[in-house]
Design a protein around this nucleic acid. Structure first.
Lengths: 225, 225
DNA sequence: TCAAAAGTGTTGGGGATACACCCATGT
DNA sequence: ACATGGGTGTATCCCCAACACTTTTGA
């Protein structure tokens, strides 16, 4: 009976938050990280929290997610998907229903953005496996988002959303290894992804210390998850 | 920054709806059906809609879903899970964010409830493959719920939630066939489910026209989906 | 004894893993 | 030439679909 005005719900406010994943360089292999914002108000002032904001009256849910993402990182995501809606009565002092999205950012864009020094204050990147205590129920939310990412990486090809436009199979494999936290066989990995429609070979090669490696593009169209 | 009072969202209301599935008897095989309610107010007065209502200020999301389910069917579900949150700006004349759940009902309880004549007015069951035009974006929602059910039935054992407490493997297989819309091999089906922890054999047998069939119970604990 | 459903056994194909091996390049 | 990562070939295992077959009951 939605939209029948019997019991309005003025006391309930709707927030949209986004768990943003990206790969950040590391001496060893790249690490999967996410940006958090430090709260400047009560409740939980001073604690780290997942970026988010109030849903605008004339704004779609996905739009709101993209907006908070842009406010946090000044970037647009290569992947954005609704995660879950959290609405426990006691998850905040006042009643807040949080529609949570999760997103992937291309690592090259993040690096570029950081070096331009346009990075907003109060934003810091954390290793997903080493998060501080977060405000509200945000630890639980982050865990769930991570679980979903790892899950989805298993059966779809979205991990390419963490890489630049063109990449070698080894680079992509290392992304999978970072996300999944385990080693993958290079030859089997190759066959798996060459078979899938989601990857398009280009005529370019990455030249390095050794035999040049073919570059691939990600074909979002064919990725029917 | 949830819960920071900068831009309140009083114009936005939160509704909770539930797509309820159950098997209903049919001359041929049982059919997968869902209950709809006829709207008694504008907008879309007179059209069929997915059962739902406003989120109460002191009520969790899942609680609200169970409540609207009970108001519609006077029953408690054997399975209840959040589906998705719909919040397009134009999905309703006023701004409504709908948190949608989906549920399974044991067919025997539905039958019992119906015959007690406690069935609410304005509620009618429809075949999932033959739904009328629904209010708002509810056709889209119902389709998505059906897709999710069919998907989930493929890799988990929840379909048992549509059956009474004890059932034969053939009965369970027929549920899968109704939901998936295709025939399954009896012997392979048996092996598959006997192997899974989710099914517990009992010492009872269903006696009928032919060789008695062992009854099984569903073990929700072991169903780690 | 026959029909029909319950239940068991056997086989073969496809995908995933493990791993041996060749190829191309910079030094 | 050789070290190193790029890339190919192949054997094996396991899951699952297909289907032949046996068992148990009611009529």
């Amino acid at each position: 009976m939605s939209d029948t005005s019997e019991r309005p719900t003025d006391e309930i406010r709707v927030a949209v938050s986004t768990v943003i994943f990206s790969l950040r360089p590391d001496p060893e292999s790249d690490r999967l990280m996410l940006p958090l914002v430090r709260r400047t108000r009560e409740p939980h002032r001073g604690m780290w929290a997942i970026p988010g904001g109030w849903l605008g009256a004339a704004e779609g849910l996905g739009d709101a997610a993209a907006r908070t993402l842009a406010e946090t990182t000044a970037l647009t995501p290569s992947y954005l998907e609704q995660l879950y809606t959290f609405g426990d009565v006691d998850r905040s002092p006042t009643r807040v229903v949080s529609v949570v999205y999760w997103a992937l950012l291309r690592s090259d864009l993040v690096d570029a953005q950081r070096s331009v020094a346009g990075a907003p204050e109060n934003v810091e990147w954390f290793d997903v496996d080493d998060l501080p205590p977060l405000a509200f129920d945000h630890n639980r939310i982050a865990e769930y988002a991570l679980w979903r990412l790892r899950n989805k990486v298993g059966y779809s090809r979205i991990a390419a959303g963490l890489l630049p436009d063109r990449f070698t199979l080894t680079e992509l494999r290392e992304v999978y290894e970072s996300v999944l936290g385990r080693r993958l066989d290079p030859s089997n990995f190759r066959r798996l992804l060459e078979g899938s429609e989601a990857l398009v070979p280009t005529e370019s090669f990455r030249t390095g210390k050794h035999r040049p490696a073919r570059l691939f593009r990600y074909n979002a169209e064919a990725d029917a998850s």
